[in-house]
Protein backbone atom coordinates (compact mmCIF):
# COMPACT_ATOMS: atom_id res chain seq x y z
CA UNK A 1 0.00 0.00 0.00
CA UNK A 2 2.78 2.37 0.99
CA UNK A 3 4.74 1.37 -2.07
CA UNK A 4 1.72 2.09 -4.27
CA UNK A 5 1.36 5.53 -2.76
CA UNK A 6 5.02 6.24 -3.38
CA UNK A 7 4.68 5.02 -6.96
CA UNK A 8 1.64 7.26 -7.48
CA UNK A 9 3.43 10.18 -5.99
CA UNK A 10 6.49 9.53 -8.16
CA UNK A 11 4.23 9.22 -11.19
CA UNK A 12 2.56 12.50 -10.38
CA UNK A 13 5.89 14.14 -10.02
CA UNK A 14 7.09 12.76 -13.34
CA UNK A 15 3.81 13.71 -14.98
CA UNK A 16 4.12 17.14 -13.52
CA UNK A 17 7.50 17.54 -15.12
CA UNK A 18 6.34 16.19 -18.48
CA UNK A 19 5.13 19.43 -20.11
CA UNK A 20 8.29 21.23 -19.17
CA UNK A 21 10.49 18.54 -20.72
CA UNK A 22 8.46 18.67 -23.92
CA UNK A 23 9.41 22.30 -24.54
CA UNK A 24 11.91 23.09 -27.26
CA UNK A 25 15.46 23.30 -26.03
CA UNK A 26 15.99 26.92 -27.10
CA UNK A 27 12.87 28.11 -25.32
CA UNK A 28 13.79 26.15 -22.21
CA UNK A 29 17.24 27.74 -22.20
CA UNK A 30 15.70 31.13 -22.70
CA UNK A 31 13.38 30.66 -19.72
CA UNK A 32 16.24 29.30 -17.69
CA UNK A 33 18.33 32.34 -18.51
CA UNK A 34 15.38 34.56 -17.67
CA UNK A 35 14.97 32.81 -14.34
CA UNK A 36 18.67 33.07 -13.56
CA UNK A 37 18.66 36.73 -14.57
CA UNK A 38 15.66 37.37 -12.36
CA UNK A 39 17.38 35.64 -9.46
CA UNK A 40 20.51 37.75 -9.86
CA UNK A 41 18.54 40.91 -10.50
CA UNK A 42 16.76 40.63 -7.17
CA UNK A 43 19.84 39.48 -5.33
CA UNK A 44 22.24 42.13 -6.66
CA UNK A 45 21.09 45.20 -4.65
CA UNK A 46 21.36 43.26 -1.39
CA UNK A 47 24.75 41.90 -2.40
CA UNK A 48 25.95 45.34 -3.43
CA UNK A 49 24.76 46.88 -0.17
CA UNK A 50 26.43 44.10 1.80
CA UNK A 51 29.72 44.54 -0.03
CA UNK A 52 29.73 48.35 0.09
CA UNK A 53 28.49 48.75 3.64
CA UNK A 54 30.08 45.76 5.32
CA UNK A 55 32.87 44.07 3.40
CA UNK A 56 34.45 47.06 1.60
CA UNK A 57 34.97 49.12 4.80
CA UNK A 58 36.26 46.01 6.57
CA UNK A 59 38.68 45.35 3.71
CA UNK A 60 39.85 48.97 3.73
CA UNK A 61 40.26 48.74 7.51
CA UNK A 62 42.30 45.58 7.08
CA UNK A 63 44.41 47.37 4.47
CA UNK A 64 45.25 50.16 6.92
CA UNK A 65 46.52 47.54 9.37
CA UNK A 66 49.63 47.48 7.19
CA UNK A 67 50.15 51.25 7.29
CA UNK A 68 51.18 53.87 9.83
CA UNK A 69 48.12 56.06 9.17
CA UNK A 70 47.32 58.41 12.05
CA UNK A 71 43.76 59.11 11.03
CA UNK A 72 44.70 62.17 9.02
CA UNK A 73 46.98 62.97 6.13
CA UNK A 74 49.70 60.83 4.62
CA UNK A 75 50.53 57.25 5.40
CA UNK A 76 53.17 54.73 4.48
CA UNK A 77 53.20 50.96 4.22
CA UNK A 78 54.90 49.49 7.23
CA UNK A 79 54.40 45.82 6.38
CA UNK A 80 53.94 43.67 9.46
CA UNK A 81 55.30 46.30 11.90
CA UNK A 82 51.94 46.86 13.60
CA UNK A 83 51.50 43.14 14.16
CA UNK A 84 55.08 42.89 15.49
CA UNK A 85 54.24 45.70 17.96
CA UNK A 86 51.16 43.75 19.07
CA UNK A 87 53.26 40.62 19.53
CA UNK A 88 55.71 42.58 21.71
CA UNK A 89 53.06 42.48 24.43
CA UNK A 90 52.79 45.12 27.13
CA UNK A 91 49.31 46.66 27.44
CA UNK A 92 48.06 44.50 24.57
CA UNK A 93 48.83 41.32 26.51
CA UNK A 94 46.88 42.59 29.53
CA UNK A 95 43.97 43.47 27.22
CA UNK A 96 44.10 40.00 25.65
CA UNK A 97 44.07 38.29 29.05
CA UNK A 98 41.18 40.48 30.22
CA UNK A 99 39.28 39.71 27.01
CA UNK A 100 39.61 35.96 27.62
CA UNK A 101 38.66 36.27 31.31
CA UNK A 102 35.57 38.31 30.49
CA UNK A 103 34.63 36.26 27.41
CA UNK A 104 34.87 32.87 29.12
CA UNK A 105 33.22 33.99 32.38
CA UNK A 106 30.44 35.60 30.39
CA UNK A 107 29.73 32.45 28.33
CA UNK A 108 29.72 30.19 31.36
CA UNK A 109 27.68 32.42 33.66
CA UNK A 110 25.04 33.50 31.13
CA UNK A 111 24.51 29.93 29.97
CA UNK A 112 24.43 28.30 33.39
CA UNK A 113 22.16 30.96 34.89
CA UNK A 114 20.06 31.25 31.73
CA UNK A 115 19.51 27.49 31.64
CA UNK A 116 18.66 27.32 35.34
CA UNK A 117 16.18 30.18 34.96
CA UNK A 118 14.65 28.58 31.89
CA UNK A 119 14.28 25.22 33.66
CA UNK A 120 12.81 26.91 36.72
CA UNK A 121 10.37 29.04 34.74
CA UNK A 122 9.48 26.47 32.11
CA UNK A 123 6.23 25.02 33.33
CA UNK A 124 5.33 24.89 36.97
CA UNK A 125 5.91 28.33 38.51
CA UNK A 126 2.91 30.59 38.90
CA UNK A 127 3.28 34.10 37.45
CA UNK A 128 6.14 32.73 35.36
CA UNK A 129 5.29 34.99 32.44
CA UNK A 130 5.69 38.08 34.62
CA UNK A 131 9.00 36.82 36.02
CA UNK A 132 10.25 35.95 32.52
CA UNK A 133 9.39 39.47 31.35
CA UNK A 134 11.21 41.03 34.29
CA UNK A 135 14.31 38.93 33.67
CA UNK A 136 14.22 39.66 29.92
CA UNK A 137 13.63 43.42 30.38
CA UNK A 138 17.34 44.44 30.68
CA UNK A 139 17.97 42.93 27.23
CA UNK A 140 15.87 45.61 25.55
CA UNK A 141 17.52 48.47 27.42
CA UNK A 142 20.51 50.36 26.09
CA UNK A 143 23.72 48.79 27.36
CA UNK A 144 25.29 52.23 27.69
CA UNK A 145 22.40 53.62 29.74
CA UNK A 146 22.27 50.63 32.08
CA UNK A 147 26.03 50.75 32.52
CA UNK A 148 25.81 54.33 33.75
CA UNK A 149 23.17 53.23 36.27
CA UNK A 150 25.45 50.43 37.45
CA UNK A 151 28.32 52.89 37.66
CA UNK A 152 26.25 54.90 40.10
CA UNK A 153 25.43 51.72 42.07
CA UNK A 154 29.12 50.86 42.35
CA UNK A 155 30.25 54.36 43.39
CA UNK A 156 32.02 54.93 46.68
CA UNK A 157 28.92 56.49 48.23
CA UNK A 158 26.55 54.57 45.96
CA UNK A 159 23.67 52.25 46.87
CA UNK A 160 25.77 49.06 47.05
CA UNK A 161 28.17 50.39 49.67
CA UNK A 162 25.28 52.01 51.55
CA UNK A 163 23.45 48.68 51.58
CA UNK A 164 26.53 46.90 52.91
CA UNK A 165 26.81 49.50 55.65
CA UNK A 166 23.14 49.13 56.53
CA UNK A 167 23.58 45.40 57.20
CA UNK A 168 26.78 45.88 59.16
CA UNK A 169 29.19 44.80 56.45
CA UNK A 170 31.28 47.98 56.28
CA UNK A 171 34.40 45.83 55.93
CA UNK A 172 33.21 44.79 52.48
CA UNK A 173 32.77 48.35 51.25
CA UNK A 174 35.16 49.34 48.52
CA UNK A 175 35.58 51.34 45.33
CA UNK A 176 34.26 48.54 43.17
CA UNK A 177 35.22 50.03 39.82
CA UNK A 178 38.43 51.68 41.06
CA UNK A 179 39.89 48.59 42.67
CA UNK A 180 41.88 46.32 40.34
CA UNK A 181 40.79 43.24 42.29
CA UNK A 182 37.04 43.87 41.94
CA UNK A 183 36.71 45.71 38.65
CA UNK A 184 36.50 42.65 36.39
CA UNK A 185 33.92 40.79 38.54
CA UNK A 186 31.86 44.01 38.70
CA UNK A 187 31.90 44.36 34.91
CA UNK A 188 31.03 40.68 34.43
CA UNK A 189 28.05 41.03 36.81
CA UNK A 190 26.70 43.95 34.75
CA UNK A 191 27.16 42.05 31.47
CA UNK A 192 25.55 38.86 32.80
CA UNK A 193 22.65 40.82 34.35
CA UNK A 194 21.93 42.41 31.00
CA UNK A 195 22.20 39.27 28.85
CA UNK A 196 20.97 36.39 30.97
CA UNK A 197 17.36 37.10 29.95
CA UNK A 198 18.22 36.58 26.30
CA UNK A 199 19.87 33.23 27.01
CA UNK A 200 16.90 32.23 29.16
CA UNK A 201 14.55 32.90 26.25
CA UNK A 202 16.72 30.82 23.91
CA UNK A 203 16.59 27.92 26.34
CA UNK A 204 12.84 28.34 26.91
CA UNK A 205 12.39 28.05 23.14
CA UNK A 206 14.48 24.88 23.21
CA UNK A 207 12.57 23.45 26.18
CA UNK A 208 9.27 24.01 24.37
CA UNK A 209 10.34 21.28 21.93
CA UNK A 210 10.85 18.70 24.70
CA UNK A 211 7.80 16.48 24.93
CA UNK A 212 6.41 16.24 28.48
CA UNK A 213 5.39 12.62 27.69
CA UNK A 214 8.99 11.73 27.04
CA UNK A 215 10.04 13.15 30.39
CA UNK A 216 7.17 11.37 32.12
CA UNK A 217 8.15 8.10 30.43
CA UNK A 218 11.73 8.51 31.63
CA UNK A 219 10.44 9.30 35.10
CA UNK A 220 8.28 6.16 35.10
CA UNK A 221 11.31 4.16 34.02
CA UNK A 222 13.00 5.33 37.25
CA UNK A 223 15.29 8.04 35.82
CA UNK A 224 16.50 10.56 38.42
CA UNK A 225 16.13 14.33 37.92
CA UNK A 226 19.71 14.59 36.69
CA UNK A 227 19.32 11.57 34.39
CA UNK A 228 16.16 13.06 32.88
CA UNK A 229 17.96 16.33 32.26
CA UNK A 230 21.10 14.70 30.91
CA UNK A 231 19.54 12.05 28.69
CA UNK A 232 16.20 13.54 27.69
CA UNK A 233 16.21 17.35 28.00
CA UNK A 234 19.80 18.28 27.12
CA UNK A 235 19.97 16.35 23.82
CA UNK A 236 16.67 17.93 22.81
CA UNK A 237 17.80 21.50 23.52
CA UNK A 238 21.28 21.06 22.05
CA UNK A 239 20.53 23.45 19.14
CA UNK A 240 19.70 26.15 21.70
CA UNK A 241 22.91 25.40 23.60
CA UNK A 242 24.95 25.82 20.44
CA UNK A 243 23.29 29.12 19.49
CA UNK A 244 23.40 30.56 23.02
CA UNK A 245 27.04 29.66 23.62
CA UNK A 246 28.17 30.93 20.23
CA UNK A 247 26.39 34.27 20.53
CA UNK A 248 27.52 34.81 24.11
CA UNK A 249 31.12 33.96 23.26
CA UNK A 250 31.13 36.49 20.43
CA UNK A 251 29.44 39.15 22.59
CA UNK A 252 31.78 38.47 25.51
CA UNK A 253 34.93 38.72 23.43
CA UNK A 254 33.98 41.92 21.65
CA UNK A 255 32.48 43.76 24.65
CA UNK A 256 33.03 47.51 24.52
CA UNK A 257 30.01 49.58 25.58
CA UNK A 258 29.79 48.42 29.17
CA UNK A 259 33.52 48.71 29.86
CA UNK A 260 33.84 52.10 28.22
CA UNK A 261 30.91 53.43 30.25
CA UNK A 262 31.86 51.79 33.55
CA UNK A 263 35.63 52.19 33.70
CA UNK A 264 37.07 53.29 30.36
CA UNK A 265 39.43 50.32 30.74
CA UNK A 266 40.75 51.41 34.14
CA UNK A 267 41.95 51.47 36.77
CA UNK A 268 45.31 51.73 35.00
CA UNK A 269 44.29 49.24 32.31
CA UNK A 270 42.97 46.62 34.77
CA UNK A 271 39.73 46.21 32.79
CA UNK A 272 41.01 47.05 29.34
CA UNK A 273 39.92 44.56 26.69
CA UNK A 274 40.98 44.31 23.07
CA UNK A 275 37.97 46.33 21.91
CA UNK A 276 38.73 49.12 24.40
CA UNK A 277 42.42 49.09 23.43
CA UNK A 278 41.43 49.38 19.77
CA UNK A 279 39.29 52.43 20.58
CA UNK A 280 42.02 54.08 22.67
CA UNK A 281 44.82 53.44 20.19
CA UNK A 282 42.71 54.57 17.26
CA UNK A 283 40.76 57.55 18.53
CA UNK A 284 42.69 58.74 21.60
CA UNK A 285 46.27 58.06 20.51
CA UNK A 286 45.56 58.59 16.79
CA UNK A 287 47.27 55.32 15.79
CA UNK A 288 44.74 54.18 13.22
CA UNK A 289 47.12 51.70 11.58
CA UNK A 290 47.90 49.98 14.87
CA UNK A 291 44.23 50.03 15.87
CA UNK A 292 43.26 48.44 12.55
CA UNK A 293 45.87 45.71 13.05
CA UNK A 294 44.56 45.03 16.54
CA UNK A 295 40.99 44.89 15.20
CA UNK A 296 42.11 42.35 12.63
CA UNK A 297 43.77 40.26 15.32
CA UNK A 298 40.63 40.42 17.47
CA UNK A 299 38.45 39.34 14.54
CA UNK A 300 40.72 36.37 13.84
CA UNK A 301 40.69 35.36 17.53
CA UNK A 302 36.88 35.52 17.63
CA UNK A 303 36.56 33.48 14.42
CA UNK A 304 38.99 30.81 15.67
CA UNK A 305 37.34 30.49 19.08
CA UNK A 306 33.83 30.46 17.63
CA UNK A 307 34.69 27.76 15.09
CA UNK A 308 36.49 25.73 17.77
CA UNK A 309 33.49 26.02 20.07
CA UNK A 310 31.08 24.95 17.31
CA UNK A 311 33.25 21.94 16.49
CA UNK A 312 33.48 20.99 20.16
CA UNK A 313 29.73 21.25 20.69
CA UNK A 314 29.05 19.30 17.51
CA UNK A 315 31.37 16.50 18.67
CA UNK A 316 29.71 16.42 22.09
CA UNK A 317 26.20 16.35 20.68
CA UNK A 318 27.16 13.44 18.40
CA UNK A 319 28.83 11.62 21.30
Amino acid sequence: MTAQLEQKAEGARVTGRQPRSSKQNGRKDHRGTERRFATWWWFTPALLALVLIHYAPSAIGAFFAFTNWKGLGKWQFVGWDNFAAIAEGGPTTTALINTFIIGISFVVLTNVLGLLLALGLNRTVKSRNVIRTLIFAPVVLSSLATSYIWKFIFEQDGPLNEFLASIGLESLQRTWLGDPSTVLPAIIIVMVWQNVGLVMVMYLAGLATVSPELEEAASLDGASLWQRFNYVVLPAIMPSVVIAMTLMLINGLRVFDQIQALTGGGPYGASETLAVTIYKETFVMGRFGFGAALALVMSVIIIILTVAQRLLLRTNSKG
Binding site: E155, T175, G178
Partner: peptide, 11 residues
Amino acid sequence: QDGAAGAGFDQ
Protein backbone atom coordinates in the same frame (compact mmCIF):
# COMPACT_ATOMS: atom_id res chain seq x y z
CA GLN B 1 38.28 61.85 48.68
CA ASP B 2 37.49 58.19 49.41
CA GLY B 3 37.25 56.21 46.19
CA ALA B 4 39.18 58.83 44.23
CA ALA B 5 40.65 56.21 41.89
CA GLY B 6 37.22 55.14 40.69
CA ALA B 7 35.57 58.57 40.72
CA GLY B 8 34.23 60.08 37.53
CA PHE B 9 34.36 63.66 36.31
CA ASP B 10 30.62 63.98 36.98
CA GLN B 11 31.24 63.62 40.73
